[in-house]
Design a protein around this nucleic acid. Sequence first.
DNA 1: CGTTGGGTTGACAATTGTCAATGGCCGTGG
DNA 2: CCACGGCCATTGACAATTGTCAACCCAACG
Lengths: 239, 239
Amino acid sequence: MSISLARSARPIPPARHRLSRLAPLDNAAIAALNEAIGRPQLFRPRRDLMVEGRDIAGPHLILSGWAARVRILLDGRRQFLNFLLPGDIVGLYHHQRPVAPTSIITLTEVTTCVPPDLGALPALDEAYAISHALDEAYLLAQIARLGRMNAMERIGDLMLELHERLELSELTHGRSFDLPITQETLADALGLTAVHVNRMLQAARRGGDLIWSSRSMTIPDPQALARKVGRASIRVTAG
Amino acid sequence: MSISLARSARPIPPARHRLSRLAPLDNAAIAALNEAIGRPQLFRPRRDLMVEGRDIAGPHLILSGWAARVRILLDGRRQFLNFLLPGDIVGLYHHQRPVAPTSIITLTEVTTCVPPDLGALPALDEAYAISHALDEAYLLAQIARLGRMNAMERIGDLMLELHERLELSELTHGRSFDLPITQETLADALGLTAVHVNRMLQAARRGGDLIWSSRSMTIPDPQALARKVGRASIRVTAG
DNA sequence: CGTTGGGTTGACAATTGTCAATGGCCGTGG
DNA sequence: CCACGGCCATTGACAATTGTCAACCCAACG
């Protein structure tokens, strides 16, 4: 086996995969990124990566695992604002003395690293900006989901979004992907109760729209499902 | 009357007021802003400021009137993602070839201007960054509203947010502010139907929480209402 | 083995939507 | 000046969706 083959056999980290898809990365950017990825931090499930209202201790680039931005109402009701997947970045801001607008909690085991500084490498800055714009687009999608879709549509739409996002970091297997969360967590993301999510997931399976078993979610016919929930894929740059 | 008094009598434009509250503006920034504000663009109600999926023609700084980001589902259901008020900025991005993530539509007569370029004046850049962070915080608040609050709470929470935001540009009168939109529009922002919004507004009036008549919304006791809906005010920078 | 966390189910309640009709207000045109 | 039309707010009766509560099952795990 030649050296180059050996090299290509070493898997590209999902986070690097994602960022290099958002903007072409030059060698300097890739080197900086690799160095950052080489110093990972590990978090157990249900740990805070950030706490709403506190100064942002440090930005995170998610390397593996799932996390979520969360908001908790006074009486304990919980709403997940969006999921954070490998390659996602949080806590990078252009302004002084930023305060975390929401808490971030790990849903699974999560590894993160400190992303290379903003303003150091133009190629990375561009990737950061696009990542941030995508982030915002997903928030907008979440609003439309919660405001105007019924339970069935919310679930389908979210699964399509997750599939689309995981594809960016090559974490899908065809029409399936790993969904390492509980129905309760899903309910908190969808603005529903766990009981109702459970019923709708069963209905979706009966209807052939979604199949979820042993942590693996399959979307038999993404196109059909997208049509059914009235969904357009999310783009943020031209071309 | 002295010159300085005459000067202070000339009203500061709401948009400038807001930006200078977000970050202290030096003379250069104020001059650039004044020049921009001096070239206003007028839009009639129900006109598109931006169309989802199209290249962003130009950024806008809202000078007067209300607009909204909107998303429309295939079957015509409509969800407002957030309101745009005087001093709000849209369409300023750090990345190349940005595409509008949502349409923006005027709700009333609106005047806008082209904000001074990103990267030209540090003080303004800081204001832009904070404005953008606030924008994002309001999106997050909207998600929690739609996902986990009932109709009554959504209305109260949104009114508190609007009051808070309008205060930044000095557009409130004590506990009241001008609410120049229809119940239908409100419903599209709250993920409800106009009929239900109507009923809840009446209930709110009976309960003494909100009084809306002839376009003027009054919150008799903001603190009590905030407690009732379990709301914290939104901050984005320390101190 | 007992315990625990998740998933599943059923009966019922609460919230919100739908449909259809009515009334007020206001600007336009005759 | 008055009639008309249009938009918006309001109301009532009813339906659909979603939540609540409580119980049960099962697999994983110490």
